[in-house]
Design a protein around this nucleic acid. Structure first.
Lengths: 197, 197
DNA sequence: GTAATTTCTTATCATATGTAAAGTGTTTTA
DNA sequence: TAAAACACTTTACATATGATAAGAAATTAC
């Protein structure tokens, strides 16, 4: 079940996040507010489904989300998102192609949904919005390049230990089966790694 | 050995590439020309070295390049670049942190080197440059997300066959040892995969 | 609160990949 | 052009991971 309403405090959290990248005038904030909705969504439900073309940039205020898809019938987690971060299927957002991936929340969650086609139109009217989101997506590019490095150069065991060290909360809030596919291994292998220590 | 000079035809190739993303006025083209150099570099030499902070966006007109680094003393290839594409260590460019990776050319190559701090200053003067490079980096984000998917979903064998099918030239121009580490396997394993067929 | 379902662990076995070493063929260099 | 260096393949062996199945633990549903 998905509930839409309008929460001023949720919207304020979004602007607090955005200001970390670039300052926004009151006018630009108002314009962004007008193309955004706040969303309440129940645990274990899909925020966006497979085959859907991404036209929304989500900001996750509360909860945990993952992007996943099916490979040979097996559910694979591509990424996790936690509080105070954006959640987007970039490959669909920037190509306007249907995504093979879905977004699911793993806890009851609160989000802001920004309509991306409308946002991209604001770029002409408010250059500051273009600059701000450019910086957000540049940061996402850095994260993604680092993720490639992590997958290619480190073993699943190294990455599990790194995850445990960097983000112990993940382990408390996310089922191990999802962490396993995120690490590129089976739940059985993850159990073995965990048992070693 | 690295040779610097100024080639009008090389610069024109760059603008042809850039126009695919967004049109540029003559004034903006002139401004970009003024912060760029053309580069000739010999096979098997480093264009940028490990520990160097990336302040250059390269456009590769002729040749092949790879980004690589060392993991436990082993040379690992992160990516390849071919004709008419940009070559950048994004994680260093956007964080201003020294990169753990180097850029090496595998053939005698011709490039254009754009000074990135100066380019970023042009963004204020010529909004079209900000828009253009935003789109270039958004495309790079899409490519990188797809690469994560490729690594995480597909076996080395699948990816080798895909590479062979999509870019048979790669195999002719790049030593197999580099392709092996790019695929995340040893040269021995790659030999086995190649022998199967 | 109990039953049903889901999640996680453990064990066994088969397979794939890594390591090391040796040998062949190609390229580089002086 | 000959020697040296490098690239690639093959073999043998050790190890890690996957598949499958069974059971324990935790969570969910009624």
């Amino acid at each position: 079940m998905l509930y839409l309403w309008y929460s001023v405090s949720l919207m304020n959290s979004l602007f607090q996040y955005l200001q970390n990248f670039y300052p926004l005038s009151k006018e630009a904030q108002k314009a962004i507010s007008e193309i955004s909705q706040t969303v309440l969504i129940k645990k274990n439900t899909d925020l966006q489904s497979i085959g859907h073309t991404c036209k929304t940039i989500y900001f996750l205020k509360k909860g945990v989300a993952r992007i996943y898809y099916f490979k040979d019938g097996i559910d694979i987690t591509e990424s996790f998102s936690f509080e105070n971060n954006i959640v987007v299927r970039f490959e669909s957002l920037f190509t306007s192609q249907p995504s093979k991936k879905a977004i699911q929340v793993l806890e009851d969650s609160e989000l802001v949904a920004i309509n991306s086609p409308k946002l991209f139109k604001l770029y002409d009217q408010f250059p500051e919005t273009e600059r701000l989101f450019r910086k957000i997506f540049e940061a996402a590019l850095v994260d993604t390049v680092n993720r490639v490095e992590s997958i290619q150069f480190h073993t699943a065991e190294e990455r599990y230990k790194h995850l445990m060290h960097e983000a112990p909360d993940v382990l408390k809030r996310v089922p191990l089966k999802y962490i396993a596919s995120y690490l590129g291994i089976t739940p059985v292998s993850l159990s073995r790694i965990r048992a070693q220590k």
